[in-house]
Computed example of a mutant assay.
Amino acid sequence: MNLALAVPFGVASSVVYGTSIVVQHKVAQEHADDGEESARGLMRLIRHPIFLLAIAGDFIGFVLNIVALSAGAVVVIQPLVVLMLPVALGVGYLMGGPRPSRSDYLGCVGVLGGLGVFLALIGAPATEHVPKPRYIGMAVVAVLVIGGVLTLVVSGRNRLIRGATYGAVAGSFFGTLAVMVDAASDRVSARGLGALFTTPRGAVPLISIVVLGAAGIALTQLSFQVGALGATLPANLAADPAMGVIFGAVLLREHVPLSVPHLIGYVLCLAAVIAGGIQLARPRGKVADNTGGVTPDVPGGDRLPG
């Protein structure tokens, strides 16, 4: 494990993701069906050039994250995803949005402080374990089934509940995906790139990456159409690292200290990140939509190119 390489790439990945998410949310809101998620709205997004550029940014962020996960443990790298929120705040301001308020800076302190203390508590766990394919398959199927059930259960509820649920489920998909990337990269390191296609321990993580990635991206865009970003993003960025840490410890056998003081510290760190995330993701103004109503704006700004 090489944290000197992994952490900078993990941070760079979050910077790219945070920039892309501002653009994606804005475009998704412009093409939402009166605040309702729909397949038709997704198809309109796919044809939007600026949205496609933002998706390309996601791909770059994904590549950077692969490098980070290849060099470091999931339980260290995946929590860095919460840096997306402070980045989104800054990007929104640079793109013409309102100046961050004092409470926004306090939100950044909550996110950064919670992340920093968590990483200090975790330390530098190492792993060389690649889980058996059947365990990987069982974990992925369980995450997909539970996530699918949750999205169906809240389908008729209000926007706040749907946004939070969609965000949490998408975050759980991405957190699990990070574990699959780590498992696949370990297999490549041990047996070469061909092992991803010729051995079950390589093929199962690879297939899982594709399925979880597609499901996570689709659900994230649906959550953006709902528009409750103040609920969606904190839920997403809480579930993502939490799932990465849980499966990193269980499947990859990365060492996570589990003493009572450590557990209390983890809970407090998560609470700080969620509280800071809610503050940073809150609407910073209202933008008129095509029907004469209003929709919540992206964090950190109300004007984006295109």
Rank of each mutant, 00 (worst) to 15 (best):
Y166G: 14
A203N: 08
F197R: 12
A164K: 09
G230T: 04
S172Y: 02
A214Y: 02
S189T: 07
V179G: 10
G171D: 13
G216W: 02
V169T: 13
G213R: 00
G163Y: 02
V204C: 05
L229T: 15
L177W: 07
P234Y: 09
A218K: 06
G192M: 08
S185C: 04
V181G: 00
L229I: 15
V181E: 13
Y166C: 00
G216Q: 06
V226Q: 12
T165R: 04
L233K: 04
A218W: 10
L206P: 01
Q221M: 10
A215N: 04
F224N: 11
G194R: 13
A164Q: 11
T198K: 13
I209G: 10
A183T: 14
A164S: 14
Q221W: 07
G167Y: 05
V179D: 01
T232M: 13
T232S: 14
G171M: 08
P205D: 12
R187N: 15
Q225R: 09
R187A: 11
L160A: 15
G227V: 09
A183Y: 11
A170E: 07
F224V: 07
A164P: 01
T232L: 11
R162Q: 14
P234S: 13
M180L: 15
A184R: 02
G202Y: 09
V181M: 14
V181P: 00
P205F: 11
S189G: 09
L196C: 14
S172D: 03
S208N: 08
F174R: 03
V179R: 05
A218L: 07
V226M: 04
L212N: 05
A190S: 14
Y166T: 01
G163W: 01
P234I: 09
S189N: 07
G163H: 08
F197L: 12
L219G: 05
V211F: 01
G202S: 10
S172R: 00
V188H: 01
T199E: 15
V211S: 10
L160Q: 14
G202D: 09
S172I: 05
Y166A: 07
I209C: 14
P205E: 11
G194W: 05
R162F: 02
A170R: 03
A195M: 02
T232I: 00
A183I: 08
A178R: 06
I209N: 12
I161A: 15
Y166D: 05
V211Y: 08
V188C: 04
T232C: 00
S208L: 06
I217N: 04
A168R: 03
L233M: 14
R162V: 10
S172V: 01
V169E: 12
S185K: 10
G227R: 08
A183V: 10
G175S: 06
R187P: 00
I207L: 15
L222W: 03
S172K: 02
